[in-house]
Nucleic acid binder design. Structure first.
Lengths: 107, 107
DNA sequence: ATATAGTACCTTGCATTGCAAGGTAGCAGG
DNA sequence: CCTGCTACCTTGCAATGCAAGGTACTATAT
């Protein structure tokens, strides 16, 4: 899997999943990795950035299977960011498609 | 335009255009930028990398409109790389779609 | 008790890529 | 001669993801 492709997109993935349900970091790694491999060394710094940007809020919850889990919940601001990123991504994919499939140049 | 999205994808764009026609660097910047903004500081190092990877070959051609143009032509190896990248990109986009649109987790 | 494996958190250093901002030169028009 | 366009190039920076490490809790097996 081309690592470079993931740049910036994993943020959209995390925000999209958090829209559906609150998650803890380790859970996000496993969920996302079913489609796109993501490592812990990626998710934790990413979640930290999102929190400092006000996109997510956190709370701790005890677990019987290990140490306490840090859950992440999407804020209103985070949802706004998700929607914007989603639009941007779709538009980007379309533009790449324009270039890759045939007539890249408008004439 | 999200800069991060472009990572790795611009290589596919360049290879795709070079499949259709030989181009010089400045021309690629203008062609691609009609869909996705790309700067000269990106294209020239990228073309250098591709050449050192054996994906492209170059030749100079005089111009009446300015200094000589350095044309790039796709090699067989470059075409192989393009095809592989194309497949990888399509697969990646699909996987992102899986995550973003609804059921990310297979259950 | 101790070791192993799974869960769950975290950090540091590195590699890669794209961009801004610069530089060099040729050509044409005023 | 100066400006603007063409066309090439390089250097330093910012952002992101990963590998490889560390810590600690729980459960199971030895």
């Amino acid at each position: 899997m081309n690592i470079q492709f993931k740049k910036g997109v994993l943020e959209l993935c995390v925000l999209s999943i958090l829209k559906q349900k609150n998650c803890y970091g380790y859970e996000l790694v496993n969920d996302i990795s079913q489609n796109i491999t993501i490592s812990e060394g990626t998710i934790y710094p990413l979640l930290r950035r999102m929190k400092s940007d006000g996109y997510v809020e956190t709370y701790l919850q005890e677990s019987q299977e290990g140490p306490p889990r840090k859950y992440y919940a999407l804020t209103a601001q985070g949802e706004q960011a998700r929607a914007a990123l989603d639009v941007e991504w779709s538009s980007f994919v379309e533009k790449v498609n324009n270039i890759v499939k045939g007539g890249a140049v408008v004439e």
